[in-house]
Computed example of a mutant assay.
Amino acid sequence: MPELTDNQAYTPALEPSFAVAEGIAALFAPFVEVAIHDLASESVAYIANPQSRRTPGDPSQLEDLNFDPKQQVIGPYEKTNWDGRRMKCVSVVLRDAGAPIGLMCINVDVSSFDQVRRALDGFLGAPPQDEGVRALFVHDWHERINRFVTDWCAERKVQISEIDRPSRRELIRGLQGIGAFEARRAPAYVARILGVSRATVYNELGALRQDSKSA
C-alpha cells in the first residue's frame, strides 16, 4: 500500500476501506483505480492503482457529485481520464454510524475494451453484399431455412432443442409458407435441424396439407 505522509490527514474511520480498495484494484488490475475521498476535508484520502495522476492529499473536486445523504451508490457514470481514456465509474458512499464520511470511487479504464469491441465489430460484421454475392446465394435454400429458423426462434425466445410438437408444426408451417420444402433434400435437412426423423417432417407436412384441404 502507498505510504501516507504527515500532511495527508483523513478521517480515521476511513482507514478500513483502504484494504478493500487495494483488493478491488488487485482483482481487476490493470484496468481499475480505486480512490477513497474524505468528505470532511474534500481531499483524496487513499488511492489504489492510481491511473489519474492524483495522490493522497489532492483535492477531491467532488462538486459535481451532489448526492442525497440516503444514497448508497452513485452511478455508474462516465469520466474522461487525463490522457483521454474513457473511464466507467461508480461511487460507493462510506459511512460511520450512518453518517456519510467518504466515497469509494471505482474507476474502470474501458478504452481497451472499446478497441476490442471495434476489432470484433470489424471482424464479425458482414460487409455490404454486392450484386454478385446476392446472385451467388439467391438459390441457397440452406441459407433461407437457416435464417428463417433462427429468426423464428429469436422472436419466441426459444432454443431449437426446446421446441415441442405444436411449436414444431407451427415452424414447419412457416417454412412451408416460404417455399422451403421445394428443394428435394429440404425435408431431410429440416429434420436434422430439428433433431427428428425425416418421417416426422413428412408426417407433419402431410397433416398440414390435410388441414388446408379441409379448411
Rank of each mutant, 00 (worst) to 15 (best):
P2L: 14
E3S: 13
L4Y: 07
N7Y: 08
A9E: 06
Y10M: 10
T11C: 06
L14Q: 11
E15D: 03
P16Q: 08
F18I: 11
A19M: 04
E22A: 08
A26H: 11
A29P: 01
P30D: 02
V34Y: 08
I36Y: 07
A45C: 09
I47S: 03
A48T: 09
A48C: 07
P56T: 14
P59Y: 08
L62V: 10
L62R: 13
E63I: 05
N66C: 03
D68R: 08
K70G: 08
I74M: 04
T80Q: 03
T80K: 08
N81Y: 08
R86F: 05
V90C: 12
V92F: 15
P100L: 07
L103Q: 11
M104E: 07
I106G: 03
I106E: 03
N107V: 06
N107S: 15
V108R: 11
V108W: 13
D109M: 12
S112I: 11
Q115E: 13
F123A: 11
P127M: 05
Q129I: 14
V133S: 03
A135M: 12
H139E: 11
E143A: 10
R144Y: 01
R144C: 00
I145L: 00
R147F: 02
T150G: 01
D151W: 09
W152S: 00
W152A: 01
E155M: 04
E155H: 09
E155P: 01
R165P: 02
R165F: 12
P166E: 05
P166M: 13
P166G: 09
P166N: 10
I172W: 00
G177Y: 00
I178Y: 00
A186L: 02
P187I: 03
V190T: 01
G195Q: 07
G195F: 06
V201E: 03
Y202V: 15
A207S: 14
L208R: 09
